[in-house]
Amino acid sequence: MRPSLEDLLAGVPAQEGNGGKRLTPSVSASKAKAAEPVTALDKTTENAKLVLEEEAKERAAKTARLKAAREARDAGGSD
């Protein structure tokens, strides 16, 4: 026996705030734009940007560590 629609909807709470009516879309169908297809070049460019950003963050962290170590070394040697 297949479950009826009422059986399936028994556990689903009723919508609130709109009187149980369907929610209206935030963007009208006429204004909605189809996403342009993503080419292989676009994917490669995006991945390259992510790699460069990650490397820049690592480089900045390494520079900060080295600077802190250099300052600690210089402060300790001037006693």
Rank of each mutant, 00 (worst) to 15 (best):
E53N: 07
A14C: 04
L5P: 10
K67G: 13
K33C: 03
R59N: 09
R2H: 09
R70A: 13
R22V: 15
T63L: 10
R73G: 13
K57I: 12
A48N: 09
K57H: 07
R70S: 11
K57Y: 01
R65L: 14
R22S: 07
E6Q: 03
D7S: 10
A32S: 15
A14M: 11
R22D: 08
A40M: 07
A68K: 14
T44N: 11
A61W: 08
L5D: 08
R70N: 00
E71W: 02
E36S: 12
M1I: 08
A34F: 04
L23N: 09
L9E: 13
E46A: 15
L9Q: 06
L9G: 03
A56D: 05
L41H: 07
A68T: 09
M1K: 15
G20I: 01
V12L: 10
A48S: 06
R70I: 07
T44A: 07
S4L: 13
A68Q: 10
A32C: 14
A40T: 02
S26N: 10
L23I: 08
D79N: 08
E6R: 02
A10L: 13
A32T: 07
R2L: 14
E6D: 14
G20T: 01
D7Q: 13
V12I: 03
Q15Y: 13
G11K: 14
S26C: 12
V38P: 05
T63K: 06
L9N: 05
P13R: 08
G20F: 00
R70V: 14
N18D: 15
S28H: 09
L23E: 05
D74S: 13
E54N: 10
E53G: 10
G11F: 13
V27A: 00
L5S: 02
V27F: 08
A14H: 01
G76I: 01
T39A: 03
S26R: 14
K33V: 13
K49D: 02
T24Y: 09
A34G: 10
L41Y: 03
A56M: 05
R59I: 04
T39E: 15
L8F: 05
P25M: 10
A69T: 06
P13S: 14
G20D: 01
T24L: 12
G77R: 04
A75T: 02
T44S: 03
T63F: 15
A56Q: 01
R22C: 15
V51M: 04
L23A: 13
T44P: 02
S30F: 13
A32W: 02
R2N: 05
A69Y: 02
D7H: 15
M1W: 04
V38R: 03
M1Q: 04
R73Y: 14
K33G: 01
D42M: 06
N18K: 09
D79F: 14
K62Y: 01
S4W: 06
K31R: 11
A61E: 11
L66R: 01
L23H: 15
P37F: 02
E55L: 12
L23M: 14
N47Y: 07
E46S: 09
L9P: 00
A14T: 11
S30L: 12
N47T: 09
G17W: 00
A10H: 02
T39Y: 04
P37M: 00
V38Y: 00
A34I: 06
E58F: 07
